[in-house]
């Protein structure tokens, strides 16, 4: 069998490259959802589009309003978790397994807090997914993001378990890097979401 040394590609492994490509497709997925949101906004006479509410909806107490304080705190939490995640990567790059473990634990915990906060936030809102395009886009965007946070948290959990088993070293810790990259991606999407839904909205 011929040996194939990939010519001139030091550094990134195949898995990492594949993973980056996968993230590119994720970006396109969110891009599609964002596009829907922007088109809806461009079409709307005002945002939030209160005028689209039917009398029944208004009678039901539907209000197209967002609560910004809690999500702002959540944003901080998620950004912080990104930092701790990166810290975990730096630690294992130096061979410090203990430091990495702390980083992973904290990131995981922060991620879970974010999810709980988001679910709580959902219960505080006075509109549902079927209350105009405002509700639909809001829940679709944040919901799919939340699902990605959950996926990322699961990823970190798996990595944490492997880390507890001592599977990572300074030379060999690709899964940690991948989890971290995914986590940053989720974080960046959230910052985009927060900006678009809460600040510009």
């Amino acid at each position: 069998m011929a040996a194939h040394t990939p010519a001139g590609h030091q550094g990134m492994t195949n898995s990492m490259l594949g993973f980056i490509l996968f993230l590119a497709s994720e970006v396109m997925f969110f891009g599609g959802l964002f596009a829907a949101y922007f088109i809806a906004r461009a079409d709307a006479p005002a945002w939030p589009p209160e005028s689209l509410l039917t009398p029944e909806q208004i009678a039901d107490g539907v209000k197209l309003e967002l609560e910004v304080v809690l999500p702002a705190i959540s944003t901080g939490i998620l950004v912080l978790s990104s930092v701790t995640m990166q810290w975990a990567v730096w630690q294992i790059q130096k061979g410090n397994q203990g430091g990495m473990l702390w980083g992973l634990f904290i990131s995981l915990a922060l991620g879970l807090i974010f999810l709980v906060a988001q679910l709580y936030d959902y219960t505080q809102l006075h509109f549902r997914a079927d209350d105009t395009i405002f509700g639909t886009t809001f829940y679709t965007l944040t919901g799919f993001h939340g699902a990605h946070v959950a996926g990322g948290a699961l990823f970190i959990a798996v990595v944490t378990v492997r880390a507890l088993g001592g599977q990572f070293t300074a030379e060999n810790h690709e899964a940690v890097e991948a989890a971290s990259m995914y986590w940053h991606f989720v974080d960046v999407v959230w910052i985009a979401l927060f900006t678009v839904l809460y600040i510009i909205g």
Partner: peptide, 26 residues
């Protein structure tokens, strides 16, 4: 993935009262 996004929207409109493609809901 963009098709997936579109299909997700269609699915939400069909099953969860989504308004992506319904002019009455904006």
């Amino acid at each position: 993935p963009v098709l997936a996004a579109a299909l997700v929207m269609l699915f939400i409109d069909r099953n969860y009262g989504g308004q992506f493609f319904d002019p009455n809901g904006g």
